[in-house]
Structures are given as structure tokens and as C-alpha cells.
Nucleic acid binder design. Structure first.
Lengths: 227, 227, 227, 227
DNA sequence: TATGAATGAGTGTTCATTCAT
DNA sequence: AATGAATGAACACTCATTCAT
């Protein structure tokens, strides 16, 4: 009982130690520059020990990716309620993005890992069987929101909901991923958010029937929300 | 005369054989998975022979990248005339993209190589000093076109010309790049073009004051143009 | 306790195994003919294993060189006392040389490595900045000894102390180095020592005002000393 | 006749072209840094052509070595007459050395090649069967001169003629060889000659019964001789 | 005769993974 | 449970030599 629990807990802690060590290195050097040796060193463990917790490098990295992605999905899931209008869902999506991105490096790690693990982001045939669940779920949420918006009459019926979802994901993932490649000291979250905002605005303009209320995209609105 | 010409030709053919072998491998596995050994094997040559034609891997890869990029720039340059309205420039840009993409794999190779050679696409600080000329030129052409469109009153003055240019490049490069990663037998240019079209339409919608004439984005128009 | 000590010892033994394998090869084929592959093969290890003990070839080779050189300097340092007359210092130098050379291959390895690592023995501009400390120190000891001998009136005031030091080092290093190249079974330390002695005698004759007491150069004296 | 002669002559010229190209490169970069590719490039020939004139790299290099050595032997042979006293022979030897060294780079090439080709200068068992004739001949000339000097009573009977000869060759070869390693623009023949002179003086002192007339070793004497 | 083209065997170095302890 | 030690397979690149033309 007590003993096995403690062991369990310690084992879990080791796992997290390893994952966090890997994360930090990935943030600093990029996924493809991080070797098992580096992670072991950072975690102050031996390379062989890593293999006690993860059967191979791929699995370790995949777990990091999943974990980072799930933080975003958790945030989004907590806010989404059924019956929300399409536009509102998109607003929530955006806000989650910003919150997660602003408060932790998980978004960066997620997209960095994603390209490393599944470089062929299969936007054309995005299916459940895919190795990255989060992407698929995000995609569906966005797509459904757009479809709903079309049904509600607020979005242009000529647009393709899937294409919108894919564009948004593609743009957001790439902007963040590339922000991650900037030297850590130059990396400026405000700048990245500003860029995301500009682009999001264009897409929103592109899909709504009338110029939508985009006040939530303005910096001041942001501050309000954070207040 | 005849003899030196033939030698010259054969030499050129070998070069092309190497380049094509590399291209095929890049198309199949992605640039970072391709080693000189792989290329040699594919070309049925020894590794040392590759070095007779290219001083090092980087040069070989860069050449492939440049060559592919230049095909696009050449196509675009030939069609652009000074004094064209912003919207028309964007239309030309789009058509060149499609023409190049449709008739060869150059676009695919270009974007695959680009990420390999200059992984940090510096969308936030896109400058001339960058190692990929084509990207910078494309960026400027697009940005100028949007600025001009704003001046002409056809584009929304609230949008940021640079952000539009960056979005377009980002989306186009990624869609193509990822199309490349699909298994070769599944890869369908028509599908990719359709995807590009959908997304381009959204962005156009997003930046124009009134819903623009997007007939050039319809498949039938495409066919007309090609006729 | 016992266990870590044993591990420590084993690790040390491996290091020494590698160093000795390298040394033997260097002795047999000369430094520039020895590759990491050769060393690995000789030590019956994989190439990669060598890199567990030495970060690169250069470091491994330099260590061998330094180690060999330091044995000589250590021996000399232990015997030198301040205030000794020039002639006595030279005698000590000679004796150390012989002792080291006679009992191990270190002198051979040292000079072989030295030419490999610092091929341009800069006799004309021998400075502290040089990568081979031992040579520089030896040079200065010899030069100072000669200068002192001149001051004491036992050495010819017309000679150049630096030139004497350089000659001695040059002769000794080359004789030993080339002795090393003889087929191992023919290599005869006694013969080499005899050759060194003959040449040393000539130089001593050349620099002393009166024919000096060279009894220490006779084989019998040698035997006495070793007795 | 005429035709075959011309062909013969042209063939000879090609050989010399190759040899000279190699020499220049050896002088500039040192023997071990020169590849067949470099030589071919310098001679403006193809690598394969080199193999028409020399069966392999080793032979080519050996020939360069021999040729350079023979210039010295030729010079010395022309001046030596039978019946000269030992001291006079040594003086001639010294003068030839200086003349050759001063007027061409042959001495440098010779010693540079020699170490490359026969790194194990077999001073202990210097025999006719050796691969470098010149060294052997030089050695014998010097040795005989010293022997003669001993017989004539001008040299110390206790010294070993062979050892003297070996020392002189060793010192001279090394000083020159290492001078060659200095960057070409820093290389200063006057400095090298001065160094040779200092060391030669010491050896002469060491072998003569009385301090000999060494006027020929002074710079002014040199100038006289050249006048 | 001359050569362009080709290559096998080599260089030092790295890395994910395994295994005896 | 943890690890130090080991390694095979890979990497980009070089060089003396060969051979068909």
C-alpha cells in the first residue's frame, strides 16, 4: 500500500523529470538537435535509465507532444459548451490559444515536436487514425464551428469549412513553430501574438458575411480579458 | 566538335541524373532524410562520383532549391508588367503558382529544400540578407501588390500588407510541402490545387473591400486559361 | 566502496589499454599512419568506444605526447637543484634522457607524436606560446645551463647558448625518432644510447674551453651509475 | 629520326613540367599536403596523365627527391679532388651546401621529400642498399673526410667519424627541413644559414684538436667567396 | 597520347540502443 | 531500479588509382 504508492509516485516523478528536461532542451535547441545523451545529462540520469521509462526516443518525444497538446485541448474543452454559436467557438479557440501560448511554452513544444514526429501533417486527409489526436480534434472543432456559423448565417456559405480549419491550424502552427526557432532572448511573445492576430483577422474577414465584431482581436480587449 | 559536345552533354546528363535522383529521394523521404550515400545509390554511382559534380552536399541541395525556385520566379517575372493593379498582380502570382505546380514537382522540392536549408523561415524579420532570394522576392511582390490594392481602394485599408504576404507564402508553402509528404501514389495535384484555391479565396475575401471577382479561382476558369 | 573502486580501476585500465594500443601502433608505424580505426582494432574495441575515453583523436594523441614528455620533465625536475654549475646540469639532462629512454619507449613516442602534432618544430623562433611545453622547457634548461657554463668560464664564450640547446634537442629528438622507425626486432636501445653518447661528446668538446671530464659519457660510468 | 627525337624531347619536357609543378607545391605546402590532384591542376594536366609519366605517386616523389639530391652531389663532385685534406673537404662540403641552398630550393625539397619517402632515416645502419643514394654518398664523403683529418692529426682521434657525419647530416637536414615549414614569406635564408653556421662551428670545435681556422664560417668570408 | 569519369577504401565523428552488473 | 560501458550503423568527405574512349 503505502510503499507501492510511494514507488508509483516516485516513478511518476522520474517520468516528469525526464519529460521536462527534454522539453527545456527542445525549447532551447529545437527537437532535431536534442539527443538522448543531452536529455540524460539534463535530467542527471544515465542514458540507459531513460529507456526504463520510455522504450525509445520516439515514444518519449511523442509523449511530450501529446502532453503539450492536451494542455490546449483541456483548456478549450473546459470552456466549450454545447449550443454556442460558431463565431463564439472561434473566439474561445483564439482565447485558449493565447492563454496557453502566453502562460507556458507548451504551444511551442507541441508544434516543434509535431513537425519532428509527423513531418507530413496530412491536412488533405486529416483523419482520426492520425498520430496526433489533438490536431484532429482541433480541426473538427474549428470545422464544426465554421459549419455552424454558415448555418447561422454569419459566415459566407460559399466557403469550405474544412479549408478554413486547415488554414487556421496551418498558419498558427507555423507562426508559432517559427517563433520558436528565433534565439530565445529575441523571442517576443507579444510580437508573435500580434502576428497571429493580424492573420486571424484576415481570415475572419474572409469568412464572415459582414465585417464581424473583431473587438476581441484588439490588444485592449486582450488586456480586458486578462484583467 | 561533335565529340566535345557529346561529352559536354553527357556530363550535363550526369549532373541532371544526380539532381533528379536527389529530387526523387527528397520527394519521397524529405530533404533531411536524404544522405549522399542514398543519392549515390539511387543514381547508381559511387559517393565519390557525386563529389565530381558538386563540391559538397550543401551546394548540391542549394542548387536543387535555387533551380526549383527560379523556375517560379522566371515564370512570374515574364508575366509581370509595371503598372498592373494590385489585384491583377495577385492573380498572376496565383496563376504562376498553379502552372509551375501543375507541370512539375519543382514547387514541392523547393519548399522541402527550403525548410532544410533555412529552417527558420523568418516571417517576423523577413529581410534581403536571407539565404533564400526567391522567398524574399515573392514576399515583396505580394506585399507591394497588396499595398497597391489598398491605395487603389480595392483592398481593405485596415489590413497589414506584410501580414497578408506572409500568410499567403506560409499557407502555400506548407500546403505544398505537406502534399509532398503524402505517399506518392495518393498524391493528387488536382486535390492540392483545389485546396490552395479554397484557402486563397478566403484570404482574398478577407482583404478586399467588396467580394471580388474571383472567377479566376474557379476550376472552369482554370481550364479556360489552359485552353 | 570496493565496487566503485574496481570500476574506477577498470575504467583507468581501459584508458591505458587504448593509450598503449595507440602507442604500440605509433611505435610500429609512426603517428601519421595510425587511424582511430587502427587503434580500435588493436584495442579490440569499437571505434565509438574510443570516443568514450577521449573526445577526439587530437586529444588522445596529445595526451600520449604530454604523458611521455612529462615523464622526462618529471625525472629532470626531481634531479635539478638551483645553483648547480652549467656542466652539471647538462650531465643531469643527459642522465635523465638515458634513464627514460632506457626503461621505456616514452622518449620514442614523445618525439614521434611531437612531429605529428607540431610538425614545424620552430627552432628558429622557439617561444613559450608553443604547443609543446616540454620542448620549450627543455630548451630553456639547456640554454641556461650553457649560459651559466660560459659565465663560469668552463664553456667557450664565442658559442651561442641557444644554438647549442637547439642542436642538442634536434639531434636527440631525431636520433630517437628514427631509432623508433627501425623494425622493432632490430631496434637496440644500447646502440641508440651509444650513438647519442658519441654525438653528445662531440658537442661537449665543441663548447668547452678545455676538453672536459666526459667520464660520465663512458659506458662504464653508465653502468656504475645504474649500479 | 627528327620526329621521334621531337617526341622524345616533348615527353621529357612533360616530365619536367610535372616534376616542377610538384616541387613548387611541395615547397609551398609540404610533401604530405600535396595530392596528385593538386599536381595535375598545377601542371594543367589530367591526373591520369601523371600516371603515363610515373607509375605511381611514390615514384614521382622519389624522382623529385633524387633529382634535388643529385644537384648537390653534382656540385660537390665537381669541386672535390682526390688528395684533399679532411678539413678542406669539409669546407667544400659546407660551401656546396650553402651555394645550393642559397641559389635554389633544391635542398629544401630534398629534405622535405626524404622524410616523406623514407621517414626512417636509418642513421644507425646507413648502407648502400638504402633508398636514398645521396644521403649515403654524403655520409661517406663526410665520414672519409673526418677519418682523413684524424689521420692527418688535425681531428681528435677519440671521435667517431661516422657519428660526426651522421650528426652533421641530421642537423643540416632538420634545420633546412624546418625552415621549409615556416610560412613562405617569413622564410629567411640568411637566418637559416646563420643557424647552420653556428651549429657547424660547434661541431668543428668539437672534432678538431686545436681550435681550427673557421674563417670560412664567418659571414664576411662568405661574401668574399661569393665575390 | 591524353583524359574525363569513376570508384573502393579510407578518414574522423555521432547517435540511438543494448546489456552485464 | 539504475547505470557505465559498449557498439553498429550511419554521416560528410578525400584520395590514389584505373579504364574506356
Amino acid at each position: 500500500m503505502g510503499i507501492t504508492e510511494r514507488k508509483e509516485r516516485e516513478k511518476m516523478e522520474r517520468r516528469i523529470l525526464i519529460i521536462n528536461s527534454a522539453k527545456e532542451l527542445i525549447l532551447e535547441y529545437g527537437a532535431e538537435e536534442v539527443s538522448m545523451r543531452d536529455i540524460a545529462r539534463k535530467a542527471e540520469l544515465s542514458k540507459a535509465t531513460l529507456y526504463l521509462y520510455f522504450p525509445n526516443k520516439d515514444t518519449l518525444f511523442r509523449e511530450i507532444c501529446d502532453e503539450a497538446g492536451n494542455r490546449f485541448m483541456g483548456c478549450l474543452g473546459a470552456r466549450l459548451k454545447s449550443g454556442l454559436p460558431g463565431m463564439e467557438i472561434i473566439r474561445l479557440f483564439w482565447n485558449c490559444y493565447l492563454d496557453i501560448y502566453g502562460e507556458s511554452d507548451d504551444m511551442i513544444v507541441f508544434f516543434s515536436m509535431k513537425r519532428y514526429l509527423a513531418p507530413n501533417y496530412p491536412f488533405l486527409f486529416l483523419t482520426a487514425g492520425n498520430n496526433c489526436d489533438v490536431t484532429y480534434k482541433s480541426y473538427n472543432i474549428l470545422k464544426d464551428a465554421v459549419s455552424r456559423g454558415i448555418d447561422e448565417g454569419s459566415f459566407d456559405p460559399d466557403i469550405n469549412a474544412g479549408a478554413v480549419a486547415r488554414s487556421v491550424l496551418l498558419l498558427f502552427s507555423n507562426i508559432i513553430e517559427e517563433a520558436a526557432k528565433l534565439p530565445k532572448d529575441v523571442r517576443n511573445p507579444a510580437l508573435v501574438i500580434e502576428e497571429l492576430r493580424k492573420i486571424f483577422r484576415i481570415i475572419l474577414n474572409g469568412i464572415t458575411v459582414e465585417r464581424p465584431d473583431q473587438s476581441f482581436l484588439s490588444a485592449s480587449a486582450e488586456e480586458e480579458r486578462n484583467a
